[in-house]
Amino acid sequence: MSALGGGKANELTIQNDMPKHLVAKGWLIGKTENFNRAIALYTEDLLGFVKETQDEQWQKFRVLSPTHPEQHFLERVTSPLEKTDPNSSSAMRAFCTAPAVGRCEPAKALAA
């Protein structure tokens, strides 16, 4: 039992209450099928945000990358995430893909 008086019942309450709280503060709930697990982003949201808030820069980027500018942009955004920090342990470079069953896989494996 945690210091918060936890247990599974408390964890379930938090899991249910957190999305409700975020939605009440203006967050949107995404659809699972639109989430790109390989890069851990909602690509449509990222591209929409950049195009809406930085149109002039986006147009310049399109000129520099006329073939598949969206894909090229996503690659530019995610490439630093794929570089390994030699000072971090392999556990720090992994993230859980199925936490409910306790299985974690390295990020590289997810891109395959």
Rank of each mutant, 00 (worst) to 15 (best):
Q59S: 08
V101H: 02
E52Q: 14
A3T: 12
E82P: 00
E75G: 14
F49Y: 15
P19C: 04
Y42D: 05
L81P: 04
L12N: 09
P69S: 03
Q15I: 04
P66R: 00
H68L: 03
D55Q: 13
K8I: 08
D85K: 06
V77Y: 08
S2A: 10
L64E: 12
N87L: 08
G6M: 09
T78F: 06
R37M: 15
T53M: 05
P66G: 01
E105L: 08
Q59C: 02
F49W: 13
P69T: 01
R62C: 15
E52Y: 03
A40G: 02
M18D: 02
K108E: 14
G48W: 02
T84N: 06
M1I: 05
A109Y: 04
M18G: 00
A24R: 14
Q71H: 06
D55H: 14
E105A: 07
F95S: 15
M18I: 13
L28V: 14
T32I: 04
L12E: 12
A3S: 12
L46C: 08
F49G: 06
V23I: 15
M92Y: 06
A109W: 09
E75F: 13
L28R: 15
S90T: 10
A9P: 01
S65L: 03
F73N: 01
T53S: 11
L64C: 05
G5C: 02
E33A: 12
N10A: 14
L81V: 10
A109K: 12
S65A: 08
F61P: 00
G48R: 01
A94W: 04
A107P: 01
L41W: 08
G30E: 04
Q15N: 10
P69F: 00
E52M: 06
K25P: 00
D85E: 10
A3G: 14
E105G: 01
I14R: 14
S90Y: 03
P99S: 03
T67I: 12
P86T: 07
T53G: 07
R62W: 01
R103C: 09
T53D: 06
T67N: 10
K51W: 02
K51G: 01
L22I: 02
R103I: 14
E82H: 09
G6V: 03
V50W: 04
A98D: 15
T97S: 07
